[in-house]
Design a binder for these strands. Structure first.
Lengths: 369, 369
DNA sequence: CTAAAATATGAAAACGTTTTCATTTTCATG
DNA sequence: CATGAAAATGAAAACGTTTTCATATTTTAG
């Protein structure tokens, strides 16, 4: 309450309204409406509306006439009028850090195609990994009265109260991938990051690595926390010592990866296996190794995360954890459709749904058997 | 007219309406409206609306009160009511074959960020390279009454009449990347494909290639037509013979690329340079060469198109044509904002805007000097 | 054949804004 | 202080649907 009612909101409202007041002088040509169809067919607008919405109490003949006349007049339903009246938009909002990330691009595609089959549209917004923008977008999408919201949070999103407004309004919110900890008002669809971390590390161990590093993302995100837990579990299960100098918890950029590599390979005690929390970092690690004449997989084995297409292009190709973005996207939509139904019965349930992951073995962890 | 009024439209309208009629029983909690603000401040709704829209004829003190009360009540403008009344949505539609393609992902990001600064939202839709879906999406976005539409066509889109409806309605349409030939009702932003084809081919020639192949996309698309023209021009300028067996005009998939490679390297007369119209094809060509022990760049030089991140990962890295997606996106928005302004003056102009390209030299064309 | 039920349609209100037009208030000017 | 212009506000209509309630028509059952 404090948060919502305080200054940022005022700012947001002002932001949303045009800074300079401009008279709306755009004269768009008149569109045909249901009134035009009604007039043409000597029927009431109510009947036209019902016919177009396939209401059972409209004669088949009438429906046929209406559809034909609609086609003839080039009629298209005005989504705004419809949405205003019926309080639903058939539109789902999506907020994602950036669509250019392979995993997200694939998830979005799956979501969109699946939603389309249910007659829903998707508004895709990028937060550019900025919390401020994420908050603003949540607000904008609320203004648009989306029927539901799908969110992959930024790395800085620790507090999710900017989504409260939507939820209070009865708009289902679903998080995926980067999900907030301790926010129980929304459903969650996520990959099995713990297991992903576990099988990635296990692969390195089984390939003979004894000295394994983990270049992880910030532990503020559940994603990386879980993967790290999986890493620790695998190390423990195989009674391998953990060298704290080989643990990094940082934003997963190429620059950070290079710095971490330099740090680890500066001294004499070097790791013989590296698990990285994304493929960008894995690729940077590989590039570093190649530049330093460290043979991969001979002297160093690498496992990445996400199964980015680049991992199969590089030399050697890189072992990575497949997250099945298509399955994630489809699951999200399933959950969503359920929520939208349950919502009608005022029975909003929340849940956590975990999608299995799978290790894709490639050359960076040795011969593929 | 014939086209629009014929059967497909009926189909579309039916598709858009829910198949089974469902009673709208979703009871969403009541939202605060401008009437609530008006009541709280003992002002009329009209004044509230004006204040929120920063109308000049509202006292500063009143505006301040209104913004504060709006914040206090958690008010968010209802975009549908606003759009219905004012006939503008502040929303731009985008139809693109698929967002997972690197170039498109980057263009979209640029568009979205730029539009955001002008206060516009973006609805992103994927046509999955299906003409039918593209037509349906054009219809849906028209229903949503987007203020403008940005389109990268599918490869099958030869006839653009499904966008007529929007244009007749005064909604600006801008094409980019894949642009229709002979459709003069819309503005176009495109890369300099002719020059791209030219400099890519020139690079191969200057690197010493004499026998150059072009694995191109279908010539029904302007994109590939222009790149091929650039290729031909460069070959001609350097008096190199063109071997028709080394020209392919097909969808740019990995499978097609492999087939083309096999065909070319089956006989004795083999090319020593290949220009491909995208990087997926360039990578497939490189993989083929590696598998066949054909040394790149020693025996074969390769140039791709788009400067996909994968080109810098592969071994050897691949020379490619940079299309500056960021510049393309920004230009699109510039043109769009202009159109929206001009539109107000009923002065819809169209134009073609070309973005320069640049060759990024890498290992696949020999030593980089 | 009649009454009741089911089907089919219409009239009018409602959704939450913006905008036109009218009205009141404030302000500068002579 | 009167006057007109400018500034500030309000009343009410309008945007294009959907939906409630009422009414008319058809079908079914007895």
């Amino acid at each position: 309450m404090k948060k919502i009612a305080s200054l940022p909101l005022v700012y947001l409202i002002q932001k949303n309204s045009k800074q300079e007041y401009s008279i709306n002088n755009v004269k768009k040509p008149q569109q045909n409406t249901i009134l035009d169809i009604a007039e043409a067919l000597k029927l009431s607008p109510a009947t036209i509306s019902r016919a177009l919405n396939n209401h059972p109490y409209v004669k088949e003949k009438t429906k046929k006439d209406v559809f034909e006349m609609a086609a003839k007049l080039g009629y298209r339903r005005n989504q705004m009028a419809s949405g205003l009246r019926s309080n639903k938009t058939n539109t789902i909002g999506l907020i994602v850090p950036r669509i250019s990330m392979f995993f997200h691009a694939e998830v979005i595609t799956a979501i969109q195609n699946s939603l389309h089959s249910y007659g829903y549209n998707l508004i895709i917004c990028q937060s550019n990994d900025s919390l401020d923008l994420e908050m603003e977008l949540a607000d904008t999408l609320f203004s648009s009265r989306v029927d539901a919201l799908i969110v992959a949070c930024t790395l800085q999103t620790l507090d999710c109260s900017h989504f409260d407004k939507l939820i209070e309004n009865g708009t289902p919110v679903i998080f995926y991938d980067r999900v907030p900890t301790g926010y129980d008002k929304a459903s969650i669809v996520k990959g099995d990051d713990f297991n992903g971390g576990y099988i990635a590390t296990k692969k390195l161990i089984e390939a003979g690595c004894k000295k394994i590093a983990h270049v992880s993302g910030p532990l503020t995100s559940n994603l990386y926390l879980d993967r790290h837990a999986g890493f620790l579990k695998a190390m423990e299960a195989h009674k391998l010592a953990i060298n704290p100098d080989w643990l990094f918890h940082q934003e997963l950029t190429t620059g950070n990866a290079e710095r971490a590599m330099r740090q680890m390979f500066d001294g004499d005690d070097r790791p013989d296996g590296i698990f990285t929390d994304n493929d960008t970092t894995a690729i940077a690690a590989l590039e570093f190794a190649k530049a330093q004449q460290i043979h991969v997989p001979g002297q160093l084995k690498i496992v990445g995360y996400s199964n980015d297409p680049r991992t199969s292009i590089s030399s050697p190709s890189i072992t990575s954890v497949e997250q099945f973005p298509d399955a994630v996207g489809k699951k999200i939509v399933n959950v969503l459709i359920d929520l939208l139904k349950n919502n009608a019965e005022n029975l909003v349930k929340t849940g956590v749904f975990t999608i299995p992951v799978e290790l894709i073995s490639r050359a960076s962890t040795g011969v593929n058997k």
